[in-house]
Protein backbone atom coordinates (compact mmCIF):
# COMPACT_ATOMS: atom_id res chain seq x y z
CA UNK A 1 0.00 0.00 0.00
CA UNK A 2 1.27 3.40 -0.89
CA UNK A 3 1.95 5.47 2.14
CA UNK A 4 2.30 8.79 0.42
CA UNK A 5 -0.45 10.60 -1.38
CA UNK A 6 0.28 13.19 -3.95
CA UNK A 7 -1.12 16.60 -3.59
CA UNK A 8 -1.39 18.57 -6.75
CA UNK A 9 -2.84 21.96 -6.04
CA UNK A 10 -3.80 24.12 -8.97
CA UNK A 11 -1.39 26.88 -8.04
CA UNK A 12 1.41 24.39 -7.57
CA UNK A 13 0.79 23.04 -11.03
CA UNK A 14 0.91 26.42 -12.67
CA UNK A 15 4.08 27.28 -10.77
CA UNK A 16 5.54 24.00 -11.95
CA UNK A 17 4.85 24.88 -15.55
CA UNK A 18 6.46 28.25 -15.09
CA UNK A 19 9.73 27.05 -13.58
CA UNK A 20 10.04 23.71 -15.27
CA UNK A 21 10.10 20.60 -13.03
CA UNK A 22 9.56 21.75 -9.45
CA UNK A 23 10.81 19.24 -6.91
CA UNK A 24 8.25 17.71 -4.58
CA UNK A 25 8.20 19.04 -1.05
CA UNK A 26 7.84 16.20 1.45
CA UNK A 27 5.65 17.16 4.40
CA UNK A 28 6.05 14.85 7.38
CA UNK A 29 3.03 14.00 9.49
CA UNK A 30 2.36 11.53 12.27
CA UNK A 31 1.39 7.99 11.22
CA UNK A 32 -1.21 7.99 14.01
CA UNK A 33 -4.39 9.93 13.28
CA UNK A 34 -4.94 13.10 15.29
CA UNK A 35 -8.47 14.23 14.57
CA UNK A 36 -9.74 16.77 13.93
CA UNK A 37 -6.31 17.90 12.74
CA UNK A 38 -5.27 14.93 10.65
CA UNK A 39 -7.25 11.81 9.94
CA UNK A 40 -7.40 9.12 7.33
CA UNK A 41 -10.29 6.93 6.24
CA UNK A 42 -10.16 3.24 5.32
CA UNK A 43 -9.40 3.96 1.68
CA UNK A 44 -6.48 6.21 2.58
CA UNK A 45 -8.09 9.58 1.97
CA UNK A 46 -6.67 12.17 4.29
CA UNK A 47 -8.80 14.83 5.90
CA UNK A 48 -8.63 17.25 8.75
CA UNK A 49 -7.87 20.85 9.53
CA UNK A 50 -4.12 20.43 9.26
CA UNK A 51 -4.34 18.47 6.00
CA UNK A 52 -6.48 21.14 4.35
CA UNK A 53 -4.31 23.92 5.74
CA UNK A 54 -1.16 22.15 4.54
CA UNK A 55 -2.60 21.91 1.05
CA UNK A 56 -3.56 25.57 1.10
CA UNK A 57 -0.11 26.61 2.32
CA UNK A 58 1.57 24.51 -0.37
CA UNK A 59 -0.68 26.09 -2.96
CA UNK A 60 0.24 29.53 -1.70
CA UNK A 61 3.93 28.64 -1.92
CA UNK A 62 3.49 27.29 -5.43
CA UNK A 63 4.98 23.96 -4.35
CA UNK A 64 3.97 20.38 -5.01
CA UNK A 65 3.67 18.70 -1.65
CA UNK A 66 3.60 15.04 -0.68
CA UNK A 67 2.39 13.88 2.71
CA UNK A 68 4.91 11.51 4.25
CA UNK A 69 3.75 9.67 7.37
CA UNK A 70 6.45 9.07 9.96
CA UNK A 71 6.08 7.61 13.45
CA UNK A 72 6.02 10.48 15.90
CA UNK A 73 9.17 9.54 17.84
CA UNK A 74 11.20 9.43 14.62
CA UNK A 75 9.81 12.51 12.94
CA UNK A 76 12.57 14.94 13.96
CA UNK A 77 15.40 12.56 12.91
CA UNK A 78 13.55 12.04 9.60
CA UNK A 79 13.66 15.80 9.07
CA UNK A 80 17.31 16.24 9.99
CA UNK A 81 18.34 13.27 7.83
CA UNK A 82 16.49 14.69 4.84
CA UNK A 83 13.77 12.06 4.45
CA UNK A 84 11.25 14.87 4.73
CA UNK A 85 11.56 18.60 4.14
CA UNK A 86 9.17 19.91 6.74
CA UNK A 87 7.10 18.69 9.68
CA UNK A 88 3.46 19.65 9.38
CA UNK A 89 2.11 17.66 12.30
CA UNK A 90 0.77 19.80 15.15
CA UNK A 91 4.25 20.15 16.58
CA UNK A 92 4.44 22.74 19.33
CA UNK A 93 7.26 25.24 19.13
CA UNK A 94 9.37 24.56 22.22
CA UNK A 95 12.80 25.63 23.43
CA UNK A 96 13.83 21.99 23.60
CA UNK A 97 13.02 21.32 19.93
CA UNK A 98 14.56 24.63 18.85
CA UNK A 99 17.93 23.15 19.84
CA UNK A 100 17.63 20.61 17.04
CA UNK A 101 15.32 22.09 14.45
CA UNK A 102 13.89 25.39 13.34
CA UNK A 103 10.25 26.44 13.14
CA UNK A 104 8.18 28.64 10.88
CA UNK A 105 5.77 31.14 12.39
CA UNK A 106 2.94 29.41 14.19
CA UNK A 107 -0.07 28.33 12.19
CA UNK A 108 -2.31 27.54 15.10
CA UNK A 109 -2.37 27.76 18.87
CA UNK A 110 -5.37 26.35 20.70
CA UNK A 111 -5.97 28.89 23.42
CA UNK A 112 -6.46 27.91 27.03
CA UNK A 113 -9.96 28.58 28.26
CA UNK A 114 -11.53 29.42 31.57
CA UNK A 115 -14.80 27.54 32.00
CA UNK A 116 -17.31 28.33 34.74
CA UNK A 117 -21.04 28.00 35.49
CA UNK A 118 -23.06 30.34 33.30
CA UNK A 119 -24.31 32.49 36.19
CA UNK A 120 -20.82 32.90 37.67
CA UNK A 121 -19.52 36.46 37.43
CA UNK A 122 -16.05 35.71 36.11
CA UNK A 123 -14.15 37.23 33.19
CA UNK A 124 -10.75 35.58 33.51
CA UNK A 125 -9.10 38.50 35.23
CA UNK A 126 -7.37 37.84 38.56
CA UNK A 127 -9.75 40.32 40.28
CA UNK A 128 -12.83 38.40 39.17
CA UNK A 129 -11.48 35.23 40.83
CA UNK A 130 -11.77 36.73 44.31
CA UNK A 131 -13.16 34.13 46.71
CA UNK A 132 -13.40 31.49 43.98
CA UNK A 133 -12.02 27.97 43.83
CA UNK A 134 -10.15 27.28 40.59
CA UNK A 135 -9.25 23.82 39.32
CA UNK A 136 -6.85 22.41 36.74
CA UNK A 137 -5.16 19.14 35.90
CA UNK A 138 -1.98 18.35 37.82
CA UNK A 139 1.35 19.24 36.15
CA UNK A 140 -0.12 21.01 33.13
CA UNK A 141 0.49 24.43 31.62
CA UNK A 142 -3.07 25.18 32.70
CA UNK A 143 -2.20 24.42 36.32
CA UNK A 144 0.82 26.70 35.90
CA UNK A 145 -1.41 29.46 34.58
CA UNK A 146 -3.85 29.15 37.49
CA UNK A 147 -0.97 29.24 39.97
CA UNK A 148 0.70 32.18 38.27
CA UNK A 149 -2.36 34.39 37.73
CA UNK A 150 -4.95 33.47 40.34
CA UNK A 151 -2.90 32.53 43.39
CA UNK A 152 -3.20 35.94 45.02
CA UNK A 153 -6.90 36.49 44.47
CA UNK A 154 -8.58 33.07 44.33
CA UNK A 155 -9.76 31.40 47.50
CA UNK A 156 -8.11 28.14 46.55
CA UNK A 157 -6.20 26.76 43.58
CA UNK A 158 -6.90 23.06 43.18
CA UNK A 159 -4.44 21.66 40.69
CA UNK A 160 -4.43 18.11 42.00
CA UNK A 161 -6.81 16.58 39.44
CA UNK A 162 -5.45 13.47 37.76
CA UNK A 163 -7.76 13.64 34.76
CA UNK A 164 -9.54 16.26 32.67
CA UNK A 165 -13.02 14.81 33.31
CA UNK A 166 -12.48 14.78 37.08
CA UNK A 167 -12.26 18.55 37.40
CA UNK A 168 -15.20 18.84 35.03
CA UNK A 169 -17.22 16.60 37.38
CA UNK A 170 -16.31 18.81 40.31
CA UNK A 171 -17.23 21.90 38.32
CA UNK A 172 -20.70 20.45 37.69
CA UNK A 173 -20.96 19.40 41.34
CA UNK A 174 -20.19 22.95 42.40
CA UNK A 175 -16.96 22.08 44.16
CA UNK A 176 -15.08 24.29 41.75
CA UNK A 177 -16.11 27.73 40.60
CA UNK A 178 -13.95 27.67 37.50
CA UNK A 179 -11.61 25.40 35.58
CA UNK A 180 -8.61 26.21 33.37
CA UNK A 181 -7.99 23.84 30.46
CA UNK A 182 -7.40 23.53 26.74
CA UNK A 183 -10.24 25.06 24.72
CA UNK A 184 -10.21 22.16 22.27
CA UNK A 185 -10.54 19.63 25.09
CA UNK A 186 -13.54 21.53 26.47
CA UNK A 187 -15.54 21.22 23.23
CA UNK A 188 -16.88 17.73 24.00
CA UNK A 189 -17.60 18.54 27.64
CA UNK A 190 -19.52 21.72 26.86
CA UNK A 191 -21.56 19.85 24.26
CA UNK A 192 -22.56 17.15 26.76
CA UNK A 193 -25.62 17.23 29.04
CA UNK A 194 -23.53 17.81 32.14
CA UNK A 195 -21.66 20.59 30.40
CA UNK A 196 -24.82 22.63 29.86
CA UNK A 197 -24.25 24.23 33.28
CA UNK A 198 -21.17 25.98 32.07
CA UNK A 199 -19.59 28.08 29.38
CA UNK A 200 -16.26 29.48 28.32
CA UNK A 201 -15.79 32.72 30.21
CA UNK A 202 -12.48 33.76 28.74
CA UNK A 203 -9.64 32.66 26.51
CA UNK A 204 -6.41 32.98 28.43
CA UNK A 205 -3.19 34.36 27.05
CA UNK A 206 0.33 34.09 28.38
CA UNK A 207 3.01 33.14 25.90
CA UNK A 208 5.57 32.50 28.63
CA UNK A 209 3.35 29.72 30.01
CA UNK A 210 1.40 28.43 27.03
CA UNK A 211 4.21 28.63 24.49
CA UNK A 212 4.21 29.96 20.97
CA UNK A 213 1.86 27.42 19.46
CA UNK A 214 2.26 25.03 16.55
CA UNK A 215 4.60 25.74 13.66
CA UNK A 216 6.13 24.00 10.68
CA UNK A 217 9.24 22.11 11.74
CA UNK A 218 12.22 22.81 9.47
CA UNK A 219 15.87 21.91 9.21
CA UNK A 220 18.21 24.44 10.77
CA UNK A 221 19.70 26.63 8.08
CA UNK A 222 16.87 26.00 5.63
CA UNK A 223 16.06 29.69 5.77
CA UNK A 224 14.76 30.06 2.23
CA UNK A 225 12.10 27.41 2.84
CA UNK A 226 11.28 28.94 6.22
CA UNK A 227 10.70 32.29 4.54
CA UNK A 228 8.46 30.63 1.95
CA UNK A 229 6.38 28.95 4.67
CA UNK A 230 6.10 32.18 6.65
CA UNK A 231 5.00 34.10 3.57
CA UNK A 232 2.50 31.40 2.65
CA UNK A 233 1.04 31.23 6.15
CA UNK A 234 0.72 35.02 6.15
CA UNK A 235 -0.94 34.83 2.73
CA UNK A 236 -3.60 32.25 3.65
CA UNK A 237 -4.26 34.21 6.83
CA UNK A 238 -4.70 37.42 4.86
CA UNK A 239 -6.82 36.16 1.98
CA UNK A 240 -9.39 34.36 4.14
CA UNK A 241 -8.40 30.83 3.11
CA UNK A 242 -7.28 30.05 6.66
CA UNK A 243 -10.55 31.18 8.25
CA UNK A 244 -12.62 29.32 5.67
CA UNK A 245 -10.85 26.07 6.57
CA UNK A 246 -10.83 26.71 10.33
CA UNK A 247 -14.57 27.44 10.33
CA UNK A 248 -15.26 23.90 9.12
CA UNK A 249 -13.61 22.37 12.19
CA UNK A 250 -13.74 24.82 15.08
CA UNK A 251 -16.19 27.32 16.44
CA UNK A 252 -13.47 29.35 18.13
CA UNK A 253 -10.34 31.09 16.90
CA UNK A 254 -7.86 28.23 16.52
CA UNK A 255 -5.11 30.63 15.42
CA UNK A 256 -5.02 32.38 18.78
CA UNK A 257 -3.38 35.76 18.71
Amino acid sequence: MRTAIKLLAVAALSAGFATGAAAELKLGLDTAPYPPFADQDASGNRSGFEIELGEAVCAAMGETCVWTPIAWDGIIPALTEGKIDAIFASMSITEERMKTIDFSDKYYNTPAALVAPKDMDIDGSPESMKGKIVGAQVSTIHANYAEAHYKDTADEIKVTYQAFDEHNNDLVAGRLDAVVGDSLAFVDFLASDAGQCCEIKAYLKDEAIFGKGVGVGLRKGDDALKQKFNDAIAKVRADGTYDAIAKKYFDFDIYGD
Partner: peptide
Protein backbone atom coordinates in the same frame (compact mmCIF):
# COMPACT_ATOMS: atom_id res chain seq x y z
CA UNK B 1 -7.60 9.98 48.89
CA UNK B 2 -5.26 11.31 46.21
CA UNK B 3 -7.82 10.24 43.60
CA UNK B 4 -10.29 12.78 45.00
CA UNK B 5 -7.82 15.68 44.90
CA UNK B 6 -6.48 15.40 48.45
CA UNK B 7 -2.76 16.10 48.47
CA UNK B 8 -1.65 13.51 50.97
CA UNK B 9 1.72 11.76 50.82
CA UNK B 10 1.01 9.68 47.72
CA UNK B 11 -0.61 12.64 45.97
CA UNK B 12 2.54 14.70 46.46
CA UNK B 13 4.55 11.77 45.11
CA UNK B 14 2.34 11.66 42.03
CA UNK B 15 2.83 15.34 41.43
Amino acid sequence: AATITIQELFGVGTQ
